[in-house]
């Protein structure tokens, strides 16, 4: 059973890697052609000789299967290739960007998830009453609006119009902080709107799931038992009901971690936040295949690993599943 699961994930990883390898090769277009014909920022032009050298460097002159083999070998060693555009190791580039994105994602899932769950619980408790109906309406709307639209709204309203928050970036450029506290403050200040945006979206999803599963749980016999015991509302709601409703909520949390990465890619671009999303955009703009592949691989790995965590947690949360 365990091995089966492990095998399943191994196969998934393998498929992703393979797909990642073949997709750019099937797609039309040539990075060198692109690199050499782009005007504007890209000033470098390549001679045929240089192109050949790069091709040799990337192994593009060898047969596809041989390329595939060395690609696999590279990945196992943790080598994602070299970005021509940035003139640096793909791994290093991604590693520098990951903390920005991951902290956005984590924070938004925690904040949005927490708030959504709490509101979902209260809504389920008040089910059918006015407060529940209003909350439900708002949340459905929020969860349906794409993240970047909410981001744009915040950007216009809170940053551009009111000027409360910075328009872009992850920290003040070229800043010389007096202390590390200043640095943290600045980073929080910059990260606030992106986090808020992603949290709002998360909150909608969590709210719906939490309300739904709480309503199911609230009609269970053991809730009647708990009420009969004269326990406090808080205890009934958060100890008796929530622990039983937690399963779908936690599952949602980890799936959303995966989804949120997708959301961040877009939202980061709205705020020009220096995470993987902005990087991705840049990489796509210049057709930097090794970098695109690297980002794609990183993101999908993240999603798959979150799913695996859900699988494991499921068992931990419900002792009845053996």
């Amino acid at each position: 059973m365990r091995y089966q699961k492990a095998l399943k994930y191994l196969v998934t990883f393998f498929c992703i890697i393979t797909l990642n390898f073949f997709l750019p090769r099937i797609m039309p277009g040539d990075p060198f052609y692109f690199l050499s014909s782009e005007q504007g920022e890209v000033t470098v032009t390549y001679s045929q000789e240089e192109i050949d050298r790069f091709k040799a460097y990337y192994g593009l002159d060898k047969p596809v299967l041989a390329q595939y083999g060395s690609y696999l070998k590279g990945i196992i060693k943790g080598d994602l290739g070299y970005s021509i555009y940035f003139g640096s190791d793909v791994r290093t580039i991604i590693k520098n960007r990951i903390p920005w994105s991951v902290s956005l994602v984590l924070l938004s899932v925690i904040i949005g998830g927490g708030a959504g769950t709490l509101l979902g619980c209260l809504s389920a408790w008040q089910r059918g009453k006015g407060s529940d109906k209003v909350l439900y309406g708002i949340m459905v709307v929020i969860s349906e609006i794409p993240a970047f639209l909410i981001g744009i709204f915040f950007l216009f309203y809170l940053a551009a119009r009111q000027g409360i928050f910075p328009l872009s970036g992850g920290a003040k450029p070229f800043a010389d902080y007096a202390s590390w506290a200043d640095a943290v403050l600045d980073i929080v200040y910059h990260g606030f709107l992106p986090t808020l945006t992603l949290s709002a979206v998360q909150m909608g999803g969590f709210y719906l799931i939490a309300r739904n599963s709480m309503i199911t749980v609230m009609s269970k016999d053991y809730i009647i038992t708990a009420k009969a015991k004269g326990l406090s509302t808080g205890r009934i709601l958060f100890r008796h009901a929530l622990s039983n409703a937690a399963l779908p909520i936690v599952t949602q949390a980890f799936y959303s971690l995966g989804q949120a990465v997708g959301g961040t890619l877009l939202v980061e671009n709205v705020f020009k936040y220096p995470g993987l999303g902005s990087l991705m955009r840049q990489a796509v703009m210049v057709r930097d295949y090794p970098l695109i592949q690297g980002i794609f691989l990183t993101v999908t790995f993240f999603v798959v690993i979150m799913n695996a965590v859900v699988d494991i947690l499921y068992k931990k949360l419900d002792p009845r599943i053996t």
């Binding site: 269970k220 016999d221 053991y222 038992t225 708990a226 622990s243 039983n244 419900d318 002792p319 009845r320």
Partner: peptide, 11 residues
Amino acid sequence: FQNGLDILNPL
């Protein structure tokens, strides 16, 4: 309460 699987909190 009437004996049933769900009458006690399973967790």
